[in-house]
């Protein structure tokens, strides 16, 4: 590699990079910088943007619809990400056992929603959750529940539905990533645990779980980033009704954008970005500290 680098100029490299980096600059990097700046302006897309300082953020704080959107987004992150990761882990451990029959079928089934569009998933689930004709309430009535909830309309059930469907969609992805990292755990660790007389559950808890910690960290960090940007599933399942119980930040950005409140929309984008960075740094710091402690 060094000898290749010593020869020649930078020119060929710039040839390789020109188009990819131009695209990345024009459609992501420059719009990001401009978008961050726009949060300090009032602009409807026409004419000259008017500088307003931090007043978009002050308005946000006073906006009666913003706080519920923020709360719901954080609620969604907290309720959907950890169960998805933990269930994905347990599934991976179960189907990875030497005595499990049908690993390929199980993996195919759980992974299926990962390749489906979230819009399609939300659509089908709305039908499943229909209070009268839906399959879910039919099953609930079948097991003796007289008054099953009206999932997409009653109180907090819409948010619960969104969380459940997100977990349903996400477990397969986590499972597949855990399966990949389970394969690389050294056999001798299990043998040592057996010599110590550990039971199966104790082996999972004290040998397997710590060994897949890097995968868990990766899934939690990327899961939180993704969940903070939740949009599709809410838009399809409950987006037609503006409700303080299901409104999320990204949906709010989209609405402000369609109203032509571009500066205000950008300010909400900055809030999402800031929370994303803080959440990621907090998790990285936590892992770093814990790594030192052990």
């Amino acid at each position: 590699m060094l000898s290749a680098m010593r020869r020649g100029s930078s020119l060929p490299a710039y040839g390789f990079l020109a188009f990819p980096l131009a695209a990345l600059f024009l459609f992501t990097l420059a719009p990001t910088i401009a978008g961050l700046g726009l949060s300090l302006f009032a602009w409807d897309g026409g004419g000259v943007p008017r500088f307003v300082g931090l007043s978009n953020f002050e308005d946000l704080w006073a906006d009666a619809a913003f706080r519920p959107a923020l709360r719901n987004t954080l609620l969604f992150v907290a309720l959907s990400v950890p169960p998805t990761v933990v269930i994905g882990f347990l599934l991976a451990v179960a189907v990875n056992a030497s005595w499990f029959a049908g690993k390929t079928i199980a993996r195919a089934a759980f992974f299926l929603p990962t390749i489906l569009s979230i819009v399609a998933i939300g659509f089908v689930w709305r039908w499943l959750l229909d209070p009268e004709a839906g399959l879910v309430n039919w099953a609930l009535r079948g097991v003796g529940l007289e008054q099953p909830p009206d999932w997409l309309n009653d109180g907090w059930w819409p948010m619960a539905s969104i969380v459940l469907v997100s977990v349903w969609r996400g477990v397969g992805f986590c499972m597949v990533l855990y399966l990949a990292s389970l394969g690389s755990i050294s056999r001798s660790l299990y043998e040592a645990a057996e010599v110590d007389g550990a039971g199966p559950w104790s082996v999972v808890r004290h040998v397997t779980w710590p060994q897949v910690a890097p995968t868990t960290a990766f899934l939690l960090i990327t899961g939180v980033i993704g969940a903070l940007q939740v949009f599709d599933i809410v838009f399809v399942m409950t987006g037609q009704v503006e409700s303080d119980r299901t409104n999320v930040l990204n949906l709010y950005v989209y609405r402000q954008f369609t109203y032509g409140q571009l500066g205000y929309a950008a300010a909400i984008g900055v809030v999402i970005f800031t929370i994303t960075i803080l959440a990621t740094l907090a998790q990285l710091a936590w892992y770093a500290l814990r790594g030192k402690g052990v």
Binding site: L24, T32, I277
Partner: peptide, 19 residues
């Protein structure tokens, strides 16, 4: 280039759209 991975689409979609 790697840093752009961190940015949520909500931050850059406005100017990407205008472009």
């Amino acid at each position: 280039a790697l840093a752009t991975m961190m940015v949520p689409v909500q931050v850059y979609f406005i100017f990407a759209y205008l472009l």
